[in-house]
Design a protein around this nucleic acid. Structure first.
Lengths: 157, 157
DNA sequence: GCGGGTGTACTCGGATACAGGCTGTCCGAGTCTGGGCGG
DNA sequence: CCGCCCAGACTCGGACAGCCTGTATCCGAGTACACCCGC
């Protein structure tokens, strides 16, 4: 169970986009900041666009920008955009194939094991939804104020 | 991010092993209960043995049994045994390759993004650790008492 | 000098290869059982 | 009748293929800019 590496890239890039105001930043420059493969980061950004987290512009002076205020973007939004909406644990209803189960029945909501695993994932999602990109931005601004200007300059060049 | 299917199999099998007392049940019979591939389930059971959750016996009348009381086995233990101890989100310290980072430094404990993701995973793990195999066993006993005897008989045959 | 048209370069977006891990299978080592044999 | 020995079968354990998702890349469609030409 390994999370898509794009989640980390997407989160870092979203926070970075907070510092450049409303100007669009191309994937190439976002990738250069962390020395990431530009085309692959572009693929991840596309997922964020489809999820309505970013908006994209083509052509010269184009690129990506935040589609809404950072206060309205949670970590949960970003994770879901990259990983998809499905839970990590998926009840395959093996009970349906057992002597004590009913064939063809969906046990995702009734099997105690599935319910316990779902409860844990909900706790995880709740925690992710409680933090926003703005929270991260503020922590960086408070903890490393000297970096902010440098990031903005690097992404603008 | 999809969890190993063996986790579901292992959890079901652990609960089932609660009903047979201290007798060993071979992987072949555990697998037959859910019509699972026997050799592959055996592979997952091996992981539980390595984690000290089950004990195994070779030869006729051999098989797997719980290595300790179900009250002492949490869902977290089983998940860790199958999936490994690593977190789903792994900080790759991309900050170290950025203009504002220190090359070679490990940012797993200082990067705000990594910290936020870890906090969510801890909530998930805490929830998993709060439920034991005994809890699941009791819920089944309370909710489906007529199934218990049937399971025990099926696994003994 | 000014406006319009065109060419160019830039960027996103999706289609296309490559790799690693999960899924599934097979065979060998070890062990317990059960029956046969000898005392 | 009892105890020992041996053959057989059973089970775990690790080594070996196949597939599917994540990783990485490339090329085409669309667009905005900048330059050039004509008025």
């Amino acid at each position: 169970m390994k999370m898509n590496e794009g989640v980390e890239w997407a989160l870092h890039s979203c926070v970075n986009l907070c510092w450049v105001g409303d100007t669009a930043v191309p994937a190439k420059r976002l990738a250069a900041f962390y020395e990431l493969p530009p085309a692959y980061l572009n693929k991840q950004m596309q997922a964020l666009v489809r999820a309505g987290i970013l908006s994209s512009t083509s052509g010269p002076r184009g690129g990506f920008r935040l589609a809404r205020r950072p206060e309205r973007i949670t970590l949960m939004d970003v994770v879901t955009a990259i990983e998809g909406p499905e839970d990590a644990f998926r009840c395959s209803s093996i009970l349906a194939d057992s002597p004590v189960g009913e064939s063809g029945h969906d046990y995702a909501g009734s099997c105690f094991i599935s319910m316990a695993m779902s409860k844990a994932e909900i706790a995880w999602r709740r925690e992710l939804a409680a933090t926003t990109i703005a929270d991260l931005r503020d922590r960086v601004a408070k903890g490393f104020p000297e970096s902010v200007e440098k990031i903005a300059r690097e992404l603008a060049s």
